[in-house]
Design a protein around this nucleic acid. Structure first.
Length: 567
RNA sequence: CGGGACGUAGCGCAGCUUGGCAGCGCGCCUGCUUUGGGAGCAGGAGGUCGCGGGUUCAAAUCCCGCCGUCCCGACCA
């Protein structure tokens, strides 16, 4: 590609709406442009990187035995009603993406489990056709409340999503592992340091699932990592263990004392009421929730910890509160809850010795001196506090640390979640009985990967793409070609021969000063820069330079092409 | 959805407090000179000052409403 013809304009300054390095550089180097908040155009350079990433994905998924297809981006709303997710997505997200057209109401597809299940279900009638894993690379739409950081969090995004169909759970787990491994190879080839972590499944559903995390300061996720045993889990799913108890505190039992605490329902406010002698750790945070089975539950966590709501649990809404008069919003406490049919579950940390300050279940009042087992009881113990750095690994007990990261992919063992609700998911099993698919699904954020790659591979001068993702392999710059026919002739010849040799070359044939060419080459970030100039030509060489390492070599003019094409 | 900030030429910004000819740098066009790390000189084009309303002799500037954009939080398939 001759740069004089390429649709690219590099910017010396980043636009004011770009906050993080990846966003600034992708815009400055002319890869992307914003059309609306969270909606981006891929200019030719950006599209080339996108195609490179897609190529790696296709090669690895194809090699793993997956088949590519393309599902519609527009889904009949009925499909979402059949799966029950139209309601699950709530009152705003899905309706915001519905389109009324002649022929019905459609949804701008946010994800494709429903469509793929009915599609494959219509084609597969026998176990002989299984196992089967299909994938697509497709645009998805999400009613993103807050688009952020350029391509990292958008309302329209490109995703590679695979779906496996198997005869039973064991076979599904084998397929899961196959795609899982393919994803690891994809990230490896793209030069990304990825950690698979245990995660919550959210609205996709299913049992076992993993997020593929790339550690990054701009990440919106955090995962818990154990340097000792390798345990890794999203903070939303991570659990901890308490160290062995060495003995009771010996603290004397205290009396239950009522305190008048009007308007102080937040822990920090109550702590302020008590002053310096009591810390947040002495308060019992009591949250009214509905657990995954729909049971009204009181969740207890020490006041200095954040609670972690397991998947499927939700906070009380106003209707729940009016149905349970024993729970007074803002002044909830555990005392006597079982009598009102409320199950009490507590984080392990609540098992410590000593007294607690608790809500009095009476407006504007708290109780001090509450003791476990004397004043309140716990029906079930677990790890319900959000894990923090220094907590103990649930597997090996060593101290864990938190790692900020970007979620690059998410894989799920769905099992029968979709096949039992979507029509056509049945097939005849080997023994002649009727069975339904055991499924897995695997999403990889393709457009987001551009941001992650740019974030991880850049310096203060610009981007520095890994070879597999680079828009071009070689950036060829001719210096002063306008006043030196020899330079122009040599550069043209090298360009033609490199292209003939199958190498993707960006040829800077523009009539601009050397400084501009060097600066643009650094900004655009092609792995190798070749410079043809009068200086080098006089000594019979062209200059080779690595964008990432800065290494420089001189190649004989006549051997340049053969050396580069050969390697 | 809650909190905050911003909106002036393609990009980055000043001007607004105290109302009075719409500016600067980069980029763009023409010419000449220059040419190994974002060149110099000369000339030029480009604006509904986000939109609507109000106050005023006069509004980029003051007031009201709306829209858009970014940041923090909530949410996140």
């Amino acid at each position: 590609m001759r740069m004089s013809r390429l649709l690219v304009r590099t910017l010396r300054e980043a636009p004011a709406d770009a906050e993080v390095a990846s966003h600034q550089l992708l815009v400055r180097a002319g890869y992307i442009r914003r059309l609306a908040s969270g909606v981006y155009t891929f200019l030719p350079l950006g599209l080339r990187v996108l195609h490179q990433v897609e190529r790696v994905i296709r090669e690895e998924l194809d090699a793993a035995g997956c088949q590519e297809l393309l599902l519609p981006a527009l889904h009949p709303l009925e499909l979402w009603e059949q799966s029950g997710r139209a309601a699950l997505f709530g009152s705003d997200a899905l309706p915001a993406m519905t389109v009324d057209a002649r022929g019905g109401t459609f949804v701008l597809g946010p994800t494709h489990e429903e469509v793929v299940t009915v599609t494959v279900g219509a084609e597969v009638d026998s176990y002989r056709q299984l196992p089967l894993t299909v994938y697509q690379i497709q645009v998805k739409f999400r009613d993103e409340a807050r688009p952020r950081f350029g391509l990292l969090r958008t309302r329209e995004l490109i995703m590679a999503d695979a779906y496996s169909f198997d005869v039973d759970k064991d076979a599904m787990q084998f397929s899961y592992r196959t795609v899982f491994d393919a994803y690891l190879r994809i990230f490896g080839r793209l030069g990304l340091d990825v950690t698979p972590v245990e995660a919550e499944s959210g609205a996709i559903g299913g049992d076992v699932n993993h997020e593929f995390m790339v550690p990054s300061a701009v990440g919106e996720d955090e995962f818990v990592s154990c340097p000792s045993c390798g345990y890794a889990a999203n903070v939303e799913a991570a659990t901890r263990r308490l160290p062995e108890r060495v003995g009771g505190s010996g603290a004397a039992p205290t009396d239950l004392v009522e305190h008048h605490t009007p308007g102080r329902s937040a822990i920090a406010d109550v702590v302020a009421y008590f002053g310096d002698d009591v810390t947040a750790a002495a308060f019992l945070k009591s949250m009214a929730v509905v657990d995954a089975e729909g049971r009204p539950t009181l969740l207890l966590v020490a006041g200095d910890r954040e609670a972690r709501l397991p998947s499927g649990w939700r906070l009380f809404d106003d209707a729940d509160f009016s149905a349970h008069s024993s729970l007074v919003k803002g002044y909830i406490g555990p005392i006597g809850q079982q009598a009102d049919g409320i199950r009490v579950v507590a984080d392990l940390g609540v098992g410590r010795d000593g007294s607690w300050v608790v809500g009095a279940n009476r407006a504007d009042h708290h109780l001090g001196g509450a003791l476990l087992d004397r004043d309140f009881t716990v029906d079930e113990w677990g790890s319900f506090a959000q894990v923090v750095t220094g907590d103990h690994c649930p597997r090996c007990g060593e101290a864990v640390q938190l790692v900020r990261s970007v979620e690059a992919a998410h894989t799920f063992q769905l099992g029968y979640k979709y096949s039992e609700v979507m029509p056509g998911s049945d097939f005849v099993a080997e023994d002649g009985s009727e069975a339904i698919f055991s499924m897995g699904c695997y999403g990889l954020g393709v457009s987001r990967l551009l941001a992650v790659l740019a974030e991880e591979h850049h310096d203060d001068r610009g981007l520095a793409w890994p070879t597999e993702a680079a828009p071009f392999q070689i950036h060829l710059a001719a210096l002063g070609a306008g006043r030196s026919p020899e330079v122009a002739e040599a550069a043209d010849r090298i360009y033609d021969q490199l292209v003939a040799g199958g190498i993707e070359v960006l040829y800077d044939d523009r009539d601009v000063s050397p400084g501009v060419k060097f600066a643009d080459a650094d900004l655009i970030g092609t792995p190798v820069r070749l410079v043809v100039g009068a200086k080098g030509l006089a000594r019979g060489v062209v200059e080779w330079r690595s964008r990432t390492s800065g290494e420089e070599r001189e190649l004989p003019v006549d051997a340049t092409v053969s050396e580069l094409v050969g390697s």
